[in-house]
Nucleic acid binder design. Structure first.
Lengths: 216, 216
DNA sequence: CACACTTTTTGAACATGTTCAAATGTACCG
DNA sequence: CGGTACATTTGAACATGTTCAAAAAGTGTG
């Protein structure tokens, strides 16, 4: 039966996410999470082996939120640039409540051995969902054949860069990040469309070849 | 008099760097550093307010090593691609002893409020040195005027990307990172040279404008 | 030298992430 | 029911980064 156990697990997660939002990541102690959830410290660890795993859930939820919001918004919008914009803005929207502790968030997210590291094993499922969102953004646009397969992953990578920028963005409401997205998305679209041209094509092909060579 | 005090400080730093290399960052405790240096725990903290500050020293030293090695190597080498290659390889060379704990390194290096964060206040001096190295790499090459001023910083940014890749690179001796540098450097050089062409120029100009708009 | 003031040193104390052996609860079998 | 195996819960114990008040050592002054 999954009822009781799952319920406890959910209580712990709710307490954690709530306190992350209100107190930040560093200030939220495992003891406080356990207390808020009404369980003992050991119990919290029974369900989540580390504080990082809680962050992975947060990341997971944010991607779900990003996906649903972006999918919906893309229904009425065509044009590669526009769709990239929507996908990225939706991601930042979902992360916004956590900007205050973006720093501590990223410090547990980036180490290679961390459960949360976006490039790692543990987050494969979430990453694929995110890449899938960019596939959706690309769908319907005219993409040169030699680019199509790789483009979604490249866009996700670019988005990871945007997230990193966002973490450091101290402007009010992270306006600079929004500006970055608004500027970068059409640029990317333009680059994709130009990638057919004789001057640009070999450059792009070379870059794609390097990406393949360097991967795995 | 700076003799005694500076000597103690140096002893702490030496102990720390040595143990970082041999044990990794996480496994090296402040207590162990203090013991190795022959001082008390409190004394270690008197000189370095946090473990992160020790990492900043490491970063500083690695940039110095990178700079001297790269400057030397560039004396006999011309060609933008080659010089970029040299600068980046020198950086990875200097970091190699620490690859084992690159993950923990980056986890303390990236948080915005960390003393070590490469984009932050505290590391401004080191960052300028690193950007300066790329200025040197660019010197002598024919760079389109509208690009020249921004290029070194862009190259440093690209190099930060390479370092991030290196952190995650689990191939033997980080061969993939070397492949990346060898492939990316000529690509960048080609892009710079193509940036004069009518198709490419507006794209690059737009990107530069976006960078300015988004900065500060 | 005696005194005051500063720099340095010390180790105990604290907070917090994590581990673990033991206690408690639950489900199912004979 | 009695009992056994498994799941869950508990809180004490541990390790470690960091803080801090007090002691010690050093330095200059009268």
């Amino acid at each position: 039966m999954d009822g009781k156990s799952a319920q406890t697990k959910a209580k712990v997660l709710d307490a954690a996410l709530g306190m992350f939002r209100s107190q930040g990541f560093a200030k939220t102690t495992m003891r406080a999470i356990a207390a808020e959830a009404g369980v003992s410290l050991g119990s919290a660890y029974y369900y989540y082996a580390s504080k990082d795993e809680l962050v992975l859930e947060l990341y997971r939820e944010s991607v779900v939120e990003q996906s649903t919001a972006a999918s919906l918004a893309m229904q009425g919008n065509s044009g590669l640039g526009n769709r990239i914009k929507l996908a990225m803005h939706a991601g930042i929207d979902a992360l916004t409540p956590y900007h205050g502790f973006g720093g501590t968030f990223i410090s547990s997210a980036l180490p290679p051995q961390s459960a949360v590291n976006p490039f790692g094993e543990a987050s494969a499922e979430v990453r694929e969902a995110a890449v899938g969102l960019f596939s959706e953004a690309v769908d319907g646009a005219k993409i040169p054949a030699f680019l199509r397969a790789q483009l979604p992953e490249l866009l996700w990578l670019a988005y990871m860069g945007v997230v990193l920028f966002w973490v450091y963005d101290s402007s009010a409401n992270q306006r600079r990040t929004r500006t970055l997205i608004d500027g970068a998305a059409p640029l990317i679209a333009k680059l994709v469309s130009f990638s057919r041209l004789p001057v640009v094509k070999p450059l792009v092909e070379e870059a794609l070849a390097l990406k393949d060579k360097v991967q795995g």
